[in-house]
Amino acid sequence: MIVFVRFNSSHGFPVEVDSDTSIFQLKEVVAKRQGVPADQLRVIFAGKELRNDWTVQNCDLDQQSIVHIVQRPWRKGQEMNATGGDDPRNAAGGCEREPQSLTRVDLSSSVLPGDSVGLAVILHTDSRKDSPPAGSPAGRSIYNSFYVYCKGPCQRVQPGKLRVQCSTCRQATLTLTQGPSCWDDVLIPNRMSGECQSPHCPGTSAEFFFKCGAHPTSDKETSVALHLIATNSRNITCITCTDVRSPVLVFQCNSRHVICLDCFHLYCVTRLNDRQFVHDPQLGYSLPCVAGCPNSLIKELHHFRILGEEQYNRYQQYGAEECVLQMGGVLCPRPGCGAGLLPEPDQRKVTCEGGNGLGCGFAFCRECKEAYHEGECSAVFEASGTTTQAYRVDERAAEQARWEAASKETIKKTTKPCPRCHVPVEKNGGCMHMKCPQPQCRLEWCWNCGCEWNRVCMGDHWFDV
């Protein structure tokens, strides 16, 4: 396979590697080409510095992935760790964990309700045991953590790749202090920090972006993250068709209702045909949960890209028209025109101005929308079919299609509260000796007794199943 190397943020060049090629071997190839010592090179990928003893497969490097290699003399205490030698983080029983690669970060837990604080980093599902597709590297999971809308060759929703760059020099040479644990960490600028490894760059702020994971991409090709779309790892039924499908869209209502993408497309087109989208002054033209839940309008309007190009163009047109109407304007009634106009409040005669090729020149009556006339309008008909009709959803289907309910059931079956801080902690095999993952707590306690870890627990039921 081919990976592209950008040395000291210059133009990239291809390097041929195998899945079992080590990072140090990659350094040696680059060092020979650039005429520099291999031990002064640092390989940066997806916000993480890659260790010498890791392989291309370990690092989730795919065909035509772009890695950054910078030349920086080692500072005291760094060289041993980078070589894969006596790194205290690798000691058996050590409590410190390697910062998780962005290629394996899962933010789907952050669609849980606000009262489930902490689960994004504490609760991990076991539903990723799908067998890898044919042709994928051994052991590589097909679980997708992110979804994007690819405006490039795909023109559809695709699995996405999370990447990070330095907000100062805009190069992907920043190593994160810690990985993101929720969508806010990724979507809110300057929320996460790190250290830029580019020479002479003092940058410390992280800037995240997404790429389409279905095809090789260049540095400049980015895609918009659709953070309401998630892999259906909890096997929730769709609120409309009641099938279990994946991926799904999880509405931001209190129940976190789930809808499959085909039904979401149908829901949007139906509402669009009836012009029953909601115009929100802050958000724009949007839709609420299909069950009509309060405070559930979709905030990231790129989710409506699921409509496809033709329907999305209609959505944008109707949204612009609705904006004009909300501002007190009118639409030209001549067939084939429909231009938005903003006449004076007491102006009865409205002319669709033909300047700049935008208007048709038609003069019409503001009251009856017919060709302009003197005197009273002959008839004014009330528009028919403008009443909002509820999208029919079966109550039982709505009850079963809740992301929140599956989460709470998982928590109930696989977790116990920490005796000190009461945060839910998952036990997935292993011994009875637990350690609270909350940095402010870190209590060592017994899963069996529910009390602080002691010699009695150690001698009596340390390794009970």
Rank of each mutant, 00 (worst) to 15 (best):
C368Q: 02
S193A: 12
R234Y: 07
H303D: 00
T173W: 05
D280T: 11
E300H: 07
L123E: 15
L325P: 03
Q40I: 05
W453V: 03
N448A: 08
A363I: 15
G355P: 14
L50R: 01
E426I: 10
F24C: 08
P180D: 02
C449A: 02
C260M: 01
C431T: 15
E49Y: 01
V380M: 09
K416V: 09
V250K: 05
V67M: 04
P281L: 08
P335N: 09
I259S: 03
V43D: 00
S9M: 04
A398W: 10
E452T: 15
L342T: 09
M80W: 11
Q311I: 05
S167Y: 06
V36S: 02
S384C: 10
V425I: 13
G35D: 07
D394H: 06
R256P: 01
S233C: 08
V111T: 14
S101A: 11
K413G: 13
S384E: 06
A138H: 09
D60S: 10
F146S: 01
K76I: 15
S136D: 13
F277T: 01
R234V: 04
R366E: 03
A320V: 10
Q57L: 07
D184L: 06
R72E: 13
P180F: 00
Q316W: 07
Q34N: 14
D115T: 10
L123K: 15
E49A: 02
T237R: 14
K349C: 05
V70N: 02
V465R: 04
P294R: 07
I122E: 15
C201P: 02
A214V: 09
L107P: 14
F304C: 01
K220R: 10
Y149N: 02
G139Q: 12
P133M: 11
C421Y: 01
N190M: 08
N356R: 11
S9P: 00
H433G: 04
I306N: 02
R305T: 09
V380C: 08
R366G: 07
Y318L: 06
P202M: 12
R163Y: 15
S407K: 12
E374A: 08
D115W: 04
S223P: 10
L307E: 00
Y267C: 02
G292D: 07
V15L: 10
A138M: 13
G135T: 13
A206D: 00
S193F: 12
A320Y: 11
E309A: 12
D130R: 09
G194C: 05
A225W: 04
L443C: 05
T270Q: 05
Q311N: 06
D53H: 11
S141M: 10
F304I: 02
I298T: 01
E98I: 08
T270A: 05
Q34Y: 13
G355S: 14
G203F: 01
E370L: 07
R51T: 04
K416C: 06
Q347F: 07
E426T: 14
V250D: 00
S407H: 12
I23F: 02
G12V: 05
N58Q: 14
L341M: 12
E367L: 11
Q252K: 08
C323T: 14
T83G: 12
C431H: 08
H68P: 01
E321N: 09
H303M: 06
R156L: 06
K416A: 07
Q25L: 03
R33N: 05
C352A: 02
T125A: 14
C268M: 05
E322Y: 04
V148M: 02
A398T: 10
Q155R: 15
P247G: 01
K220V: 12
T386S: 13
G357R: 12
G47F: 03
G47T: 01
L331C: 05
V121R: 15
P132T: 11
E207D: 08
V30H: 00
P189A: 09
G359K: 12
A38N: 04
C451P: 15
T351M: 07
H200T: 13
L26Q: 00
L162K: 01
C196R: 01
F364N: 03
E452V: 15
P113E: 13
A397E: 12
H124S: 14
C365N: 03
T222K: 11
V250T: 06
N273C: 03
P247D: 02
G12H: 08
T237W: 03
P288R: 06
C436P: 01
I229S: 00
C365K: 03
C154Y: 01
G118I: 02
Q158E: 07
T237D: 05
Q389C: 13
V17I: 09
R402N: 06
G93I: 14
A38M: 06
L123V: 11
T270C: 09
R305E: 13
T177C: 09
V5I: 09
Q63H: 15
H200W: 08
T415H: 12
R104H: 13
D130N: 10
D184M: 07
S127I: 10
W183T: 00
A397Q: 09
S296G: 03
A291N: 11
V380L: 09
W403E: 02
I259T: 04
W54G: 04
P37L: 06
N428T: 14
R275S: 01
H265P: 03
L112A: 15
P133A: 11
C268S: 08
K427W: 10
V157I: 09
L341Y: 07
G459Q: 15
D126T: 08
A138W: 10
I239Q: 02
E16M: 07
L266P: 03
L342F: 10
F277W: 10
R442C: 09
H302L: 08
A405I: 14
A31P: 00
R420T: 09
I306H: 03
I298H: 02
I69K: 00
E49R: 00
D126N: 10
G194P: 02
F277G: 02
Q178N: 13
C150W: 01
E28Q: 11
P189D: 06
